[in-house]
Amino acid sequence: MSATINTNLDTDQGSLWEVFIQSKPGQPYKHAGSIHAFDKEMAIENARDVYTRRNEGTSLWLVPSNEIVAVSSPESASFFEPASDKIYRHPTFYNLPEGVKQM
């Protein structure tokens, strides 16, 4: 029923790699898309040519698509439940006296 991502493509165009770009030092890496490549070196070069022609980043991560483990809420509704029954994790949960500063 649910869509499976075909990452192990049976073609002569190499395997799929996911591209993550860090826009500036200190920033988190962000998913940009994917590319085809036959090895790590080609993956890095192809990612540079396809995704960073205009200084979009100073650093790249390349990950073979079939090595990524993923889960999302529609597949397994209860998976993220532990996060929703602990509202005391949010600062807005707490009552504080009037006039308290810098908190």
Binding site: A3, T4, I5, N6, L9, D10, T11, D12, Q13, L16, G33, S34, I35, H36, D49, V50, R53
Partner: peptide
């Protein structure tokens, strides 16, 4: 070169639907 790159972004998006670029 950009047009080639745009083609590749789009094939990349299209492959997420379970069909290979080939």
């Amino acid at each position: 070169q950009d047009e080639g790159g745009h083609g590749l972004y789009l094939y990349s998006a299209a492959e997420t639907l379970g069909v290979s670029r080939d």
